[in-house]
Simulated assay, not measured.
Amino acid sequence: MALQSSSFIISNTLNRIHITQCCSPRQQQPAEQFAPLANRFQRRLLLGLGSASLVALGANFAGITSFLLSLSPENGRNLKLDVLYPIRGYSRCLDTNQGFEFIYPANWVGDQTLLYRAAKKRELELPLDPPPLNATPKRSNISEPVVAFGPPGSTGELNVSVIVSPVSQDFSIEAFGGPEEVGESVVRTITGSGQRPEVKGTLITSTLREDSLKNAKYYEIEFRVESPSFRRHNVAVCCARRGKLFTLNAQAPESAWPSVKSDFYRIADSFSLTT
């Protein structure tokens, strides 16, 4: 009986297993089970690759965006994309508040000395404590640069800066004469008009660049300033419009001039008004 009961149990169990295999729905194979998941993963992978590509372009990862823009540099510069991404080694400074722009070497950084000085000046202009009632405001006739760039870690002897000075609405640079007369006037002003005999200035070239579309005239001046303690090479651009005198000045020690000459010419030629 025990054996019969055991045989019956085993037989009954095998029979139920057989019935279950025959009558239950067909079990899916592993490939079929994971097919929807694989399709979903593939879609997410493609979406992730697309997003990663956009992030890489947006962040200029490994210089991808700069490389692509360098394939058509003029189009990129016309769209002002070099404000965000360097194009062929140059970035763009675009000051929409003052109304000017120019390009400079992409590895240059903002002049920290200028930033600290501007912050200190702003702090003095807007003190936290109210001024005394009998105080008279002090005005400085020295114009500070609104922007300045130079190589990282430099002492400030090599840089490019822009000064925007207020002038009368009818001010005209042409009143000083032609390009050469304007150049000589600039050099005399920088050297102190002979009041500092130890400082000497030499005008190298002075030319006029006209932009008929913006109705602007740019005086490009190259000159050298030297004294017993320094010798500097400068390239400057002057332009006036609507009560503002714009002066871009790129300066370098005379010893560094051969290595930065092409950069300075590119900077000067790119300077223009935006309004």
Rank of each mutant, 00 (worst) to 15 (best):
T136S: 03
R139S: 10
V147Q: 03
P127S: 10
K120C: 09
A148C: 11
N107M: 12
F100K: 07
A135M: 14
L94V: 08
F100D: 02
Q112I: 10
E125R: 13
L94H: 05
V146E: 01
S91N: 14
P137V: 14
T136E: 14
E123N: 09
R92E: 00
F102K: 04
L128W: 04
F149N: 10
D111K: 08
A119N: 04
I142A: 05
P137F: 15
P131T: 12
R92N: 03
T96A: 15
D111L: 08
G150L: 10
V146Q: 04
V146F: 06
L124F: 05
L133F: 13
L133R: 11
K121W: 10
N107H: 11
P132V: 09
Y90Q: 07
D111I: 02
I142S: 03
Y116E: 11
A118F: 01
T113M: 13
P151A: 06
L84Y: 13
R88E: 15
A135E: 10
E125P: 00
A118Q: 11
D111T: 02
E125V: 08
G99L: 01
W108V: 01
G150R: 12
Y116S: 15
R88Y: 04
Q112G: 08
F100G: 00
A118T: 08
P132M: 09
S154E: 00
L128S: 07
L114V: 02
I87E: 04
T96R: 12
N134D: 07
T96W: 09
I142Q: 07
S91C: 05
P130M: 06
R122T: 04
V147H: 00
Q98R: 06
Y116N: 07
N141F: 15
G150Q: 08
D95T: 04
I87T: 01
P151W: 02
L115T: 08
Q112R: 14
R88A: 14
P105Y: 05
F102C: 07
Y85D: 08
Y116L: 11
N107W: 05
P132N: 12
I142V: 13
G110M: 08
I103R: 13
F100M: 07
L84K: 05
L124P: 01
P151Q: 06
P86V: 00
T155W: 07
G150M: 12
Y90V: 11
I87A: 10
Q98P: 02
R139C: 12
P131F: 10
S154L: 12
W108K: 09
F100R: 12
C93K: 09
G150D: 00
P105L: 07
Y104K: 05
N141L: 03
I103T: 11
Q98G: 01
T136C: 06
F102L: 14
Y90R: 01
L124T: 06
P132C: 04
